[in-house]
């Protein structure tokens, strides 16, 4: 742990109450950043979910699909801190099912959260980040949480594939845009493999309910066997990659993608 690597920086993390978002908030806090997270939960639920981070992390109840909520989130960060150097677009949901049974409504919902949310957050925060970015070494940094499912296809995951693939290329587009315009903002995507998060556990339970496996542990065992490193990732391992991309050590990284999957997509 390199304490202070993000000292003096303000970071905003969507979906920050659980899993990767929570770990990213904790990690950046450890490295000296001022951290504000957003999620859907009420203030009091957020306080409980943040646990020992609650006293040190700001919270905005906001839905990433709601433009008004984004305006409020930006206003909160601007009023409270006057700057934003790091934006982690992490909030996301999954969706599984054969393509002919997917409902348009569900397709639109995953696109709204996983894609529209990243677009709106970026759109709203970029003007402030363009100002703040000139204050810090390596500039401001947007880290978009995609997935290995944004790199390769997977059966019965086509909607999630499409949404995470969109995040990957959206990130490259804005990276080139900021760089050519001389705006001090870098943008990179992170592509976690299978991570031990509430989202994964819920997904595994759904597979079990569908009769794909007898119990969630069978699916965990199968994932472990399919991963060269032989295990699932822990959220803090994804958080470390996010913190690296957020900070000054990644000053020449923009438009890049960081795959953190224990070798899964190398096969």
């Amino acid at each position: 742990m390199s304490a202070g690597r993000l000292a003096g920086r303000v970071a905003f993390v969507t979906g920050g109450l659980r899993g990767i978002g929570h770990a990213a908030a904790a990690r950046m806090l450890d490295e000296g950043a001022t951290v504000i997270v957003s999620d859907l939960d009420s203030e009091s639920d957020a306080h409980d979910l943040l646990g020992d981070l609650a006293d040190r992390v700001g919270y905005v109840q906001a839905n990433v699909t709601d433009e008004g909520d984004w305006a409020r989130a930006l206003d909160h960060v601007q009023q409270a801190h006057g700057a934003c150097h790091i934006l982690v677009n992490n909030a996301g949901i999954d969706l599984t099912g054969t393509v002919e049974t997917l409902e348009l409504e569900d397709w639109r919902r995953i696109m709204a959260i996983n894609v529209d949310g990243v677009f709106m957050g970026t759109k709203r925060f970029v003007p402030l980040m363009a100002e703040s970015g000139s204050e810090v070494e390596g500039g401001a940094s947007i880290v978009n949480v995609s997935s290995i499912m944004g790199l390769v296809g997977y059966a019965e995951v086509s909607a999630y594939n499409a949404s995470k693939g969109a995040v990957r290329l959206f990130t490259k587009g804005i990276a080139i845009e900021f760089a050519t315009k001389g705006m001090p903002i870098r943008a990179n995507s992170v592509h976690p493999g299978f991570v031990e998060t509430p989202l994964l556990k819920a997904g595994f339970q759904r597979w079990v309910d569908k009769g794909v496996a007898e119990k969630p542990q069978d699916l965990v065992d199968a994932m472990n066997a399919a991963t060269p490193m032989g295990r699932l990732a822990q959220p803090r391992e994804i958080a470390a990659g996010i913190a690296f991309l957020a900070g000054p050590d990644a000053s020449y990284m923009t438009g890049s993608e960081m795959v953190i999957d224990g070798g899964w997509t190398a096969q």
Partner: peptide, 16 residues
């Protein structure tokens, strides 16, 4: 947990 990855560090030279 990073293994088998290829990490581009090129100031977006190859991003598009």
């Amino acid at each position: 947990f990073i293994s088998g990855a290829d990490l581009t560090i090129d100031g977006a030279s190859t991003a598009g």
